[in-house]
Write a protein that binds this DNA or RNA. Structure first.
Lengths: 333, 333
DNA sequence: CTGAAAGCGCTTACAG
DNA sequence: CTGAAAGCGCTTACAG
């Protein structure tokens, strides 16, 4: 049986340093608050014994677990990579551990997972959630919650400002001579889908273009592929999709159908996911600073841990921007 | 201040059910071991109080944390997505929590992270590690370790059998008339790089082909791109790369240089990462059952928790296979 | 089958 | 500044 000779405890240190265990605890927990010589002695003993605090033992009396849950709908969705990484790094930096949980796009799985994980975390970040506003509010009563890309009354959030990137994109299309464009929508219930559409519409109308909202089945490659026929039917020369996955699906379907991008049709995605520049032509997309958003989500959560009140906090608005690549070009005459 | 009225404890349940706390503990921990009526009473009370065990309190006396660390070099590397997901699902299924840690390709960061996380986990899976064999062995003394895609004496591992996919791939190239091929190598220190090269060489030689091993700077898009010149210089008609990322970099550089794939050059990658079919032509690749490997890594770890001895375990060999897409074609005459 | 008690490794008022 | 003690919420021999 693999047995690590039981790890050293503060009692071992106390014995070695000739002090009381409580002194050891203080020396290790609040540096500078006790006699410097004593502290040095304790630290020396701790090092000698290769001591590491037992986080579980510490969590019991304090109630602080020093871990954060990060919920995503689908770990394999590339949108989350950078989000998770940003969060991971920000958490590690302050000694917090990040637990990544996957809801598999199911609100039932999400609830069950949260239920299981909640007792062992100090708070949760909902990277993408299938929960209803009510469920989120209820969760927020139990432990601090930070929402990413979504807004619920009374709950903290980090949401990028979609408008700059969208304004750029629409302007870009207008400059290229496009008059009639379309938006291939994502999930109707998605907060960010609505936000994107609203900005898109406003900007297009302001620049004198028409814009058609085209529905889709799912925000995936397949969904984008499936929307192609409707995009064609709409008779537009340029299309913006809810996300890159859809844009790539659309692009491939267009190519397969003999429609050349961008000569016949310009395409712009959202997110700048991994692989969005693998396509031919590489995809133009509206980029979100995902890693920063992830980091900011944990920072926001951390702040809420020490907040006096229950006031929700809102991440300083991260900003989107257009990444021009090869899938946009002059409108077909 | 957000205060959840303190969570119910087994004492609350005990009071409500009119039994001793230890009875509550037993009822909840080992169903069926106590009087059925008592157990029902306890369960009823627990439900009524919306009780959830405090995992930290439970971990203290038992020493079992029910969490597993999964270390990867880079969260944003698509190779890890499926690996992580497989592990995540397998862990959740048995009530274990997975903590994903990132070494950022640095053995120092890796050691520090492991150091920080080790006390709170029951074992660790090294998805990709920069640690030396010695460091891994030392780690394995402290907590059970399972290696993915690497072998170290005395340490459990899950390693796919590369040979079937490679045999298929080489045969495929031979059938297409290729006589001279190359392998763009990954990190020299990588166990799996060596394994892939060995199989490749053996198969190529057996089929009467020549095969050149071409070095690279890094197993990335850039690395693949940077290897293009050397691939050309080698005068081969087909090339296999250490991974898809390199294959894609190579493919794009080839296209940019006016070398048509697969007409002028056939390319095969490894891993079937997300986005490997976004390219034009879509990349042919040797696929690894990553999700299964991830799941198996946690299963192996779980087994080692209950093993009597220290005998290392080896995952039942998962198998690779060739995924033929568009980047391979007839050898140029 | 079930109580009563000790203990897991820490933290933190409370004294001095 | 530092001891001595109680307590965090559980589990588990030990009795009965």
């Amino acid at each position: 049986m693999r047995v690590n000779e039981k790890a050293a405890t503060i009692y071992d240190i106390a014995k070695l340093a000739g002090v009381n265990p409580s002194t050891v605890s203080r020396a290790l927990t609040t540096p500078g608050r006790i006699n410097a010589t004593t502290e040095a002695k304790v630290r020396e003993a701790a090092k000698q014994l290769n001591y590491r605090v037992n986080p579980f033992a510490r969590a019991l009396p304090t109630g602080k677990t020093k871990t954060i849950a990060f919920m995503v709908a689908d770990i394999t969705n590339p949108v989350f990579f950078k989000l998770v990484r940003g969060a991971e790094l920000a958490a590690a930096e302050v000694g917090y551990t990040l637990v990544i949980a996957e809801s598999q796009e199911s609100s039932l799985v999400e609830s069950a997972t949260l239920e299981r994980i909640l007792p062992s975390v100090d708070g949760v970040i909902l990277g993408t959630t299938r929960l209803s506003d009510e469920e989120i509010s209820a969760l927020n009563q139990q432990k601090p919650v930070v929402l990413v890309n979504r807004k619920v009354d009374g709950v903290s959030d980090v949401v990028p400002d979609n408008s700059p990137g969208i304004a750029e994109a629409v302007k870009h299309l207008a400059d290229l001579g496009h008059k009639h464009i379309a938006f291939v929508a994502g999930p109707a219930a998605s907060w960010i889908n609505t936000d994107r559409w609203n900005h898109l519409m406003k900007n297009a109308v302001e620049l004198g273009m028409t814009i058609a909202e085209i529905s889709s089945n799912e925000p995936t490659l397949e969904g984008g592929k499936g929307a192609f026929e409707r995009v064609r039917a709409a008779g537009v020369t340029a299309v913006v999709t809810y996300n890159d996955l859809m844009a790539i699906g659309l692009l491939r379907e267009a190519t397969a159908a003999g429609v050349t991008v961008p000569t016949d049709l310009s395409i712009i995605g959202f997110d700048n996911i991994f692989g969005s520049d693998f396509t031919n032509p590489p995809l133009s997309t509206i980029e979100m600073p995902l890693q920063k958003i992830g980091a900011e989500a944990v920072e926001t959560l951390l702040k809420s841990f020490v907040a006096e009140d229950d006031e929700p906090m809102h991440g300083t608005s991260e900003v989107t921007s257009l990444l021009m690549r090869g899938s946009t070009g002059k409108a077909k005459a």
